[in-house]
Design a protein around this nucleic acid. Sequence first.
DNA 1: GCCAAATTTTGCACACTGTGCAAGAAATAT
DNA 2: ATATTTCTTGCACAGTGTGCAAAATTTGGC
Lengths: 212, 212
Amino acid sequence: MQNVEDAAEPPEPVGRREQNKIDTRRAIAEAALTLARTKGAGSFTVDQIAARAGVSRRTFFNYFHSAEEALNVSTESFLELAISSFSRRPAGEPLLDAMIAALAATAKVQDLAVHGELFRMAAGSPELLRAQLHAWERAEARIIEAVTHHLQGGASPLYVSALVGSVLSCAKAAMHDWAADDPDRHGDAGAALEERMVLALSMLRDGFAHPA
Amino acid sequence: MQNVEDAAEPPEPVGRREQNKIDTRRAIAEAALTLARTKGAGSFTVDQIAARAGVSRRTFFNYFHSAEEALNVSTESFLELAISSFSRRPAGEPLLDAMIAALAATAKVQDLAVHGELFRMAAGSPELLRAQLHAWERAEARIIEAVTHHLQGGASPLYVSALVGSVLSCAKAAMHDWAADDPDRHGDAGAALEERMVLALSMLRDGFAHPA
DNA sequence: GCCAAATTTTGCACACTGTGCAAGAAATAT
DNA sequence: ATATTTCTTGCACAGTGTGCAAAATTTGGC
């Protein structure tokens, strides 16, 4: 039982400590999601999550500040991926193009069904909604920082934050619209979401001149 | 003590019941704001608010769901005003123009210093930030509804929600930028905020083509 | 393999939150 | 004046979130 990790990561010393933490985190998040599916968004307790994940109540709070935060792991990772995707765009590329490309790419990759679920759940759970909004807000702050750095002083703070906010609003609108469609209809969910992302961001680029 | 209200409102039967509720609400909100200023954003309890407002803890919860909600009365009323201002715009007016005008008008009228304060407080209090984001979200939903109604089916849901989200993001960015400036510098805060609103929304109308 | 140091988990205590309920107080209607 | 509606309050109760110190686990040196 010693060679658990000799396939993928060369310079990654994944000791048992870190691996255990990752596993625990995942177990908690999964437990929370299962409970949300079973009993509904705001209708279960931290104790239930902890029990299902096989940890103590106290340990749960070592990983998350609230039940809703545990549910949003998926949202966070989506945004995380979008950010890293953006930061890997070529330097000269126009901002909006880079953002569109990054978001569209992310829409393909991610485990999308869950996001639709979460979006819909949030409609009936204020606490969950607040947590999601907060996650987007944190992502926005990070993207603003990245873009500011990317433009190297070539734009006012107001410009950057208005731009980033608008882009994320369009992405959110796209996800909202996408999630509102009945969940498991046509085959490629990724394509459907990507299409809407591109569409919404094109509208933005147009300055919303044409009510398409 | 019988003619307490015979000066301004002709057809408004403001009974003692309603007036008391209004007063209580205001007293609670003020108490919360005072405490936030004194002890810091997340560093006081509901009991303290209730005590200072002269009501029972239970009554507090009859008016607000949380301490943060009580703090956000001001934010809510700002958005409320913006919405009603928008809905009074002439029918033929282009959407973006109407929204710009509505927000700019609201920026002048409102009791602005408090908003700056709240924005800055939110930076150090996750719970308050979430509450504010939630307030904006609720306003967004209402505006989307208003705009949809205003356009009478002439635009896709995606267009409307992307547009409204972007506009509000710009407004938020403007307030953020405005609040970040040192609080009490030049005379007319309203003008400063209005200017930024118009600026940010002009950028939006440009499709953010020029990094001004 | 075994022990010491570092880190993580856990139980416990404690202050605080948010809500249902029923009794009491205040405003309104008759 | 009194009956009725509406608001306030106290109480109970389940749940939250965090500090703290005692286990339990992992890591590294020998």
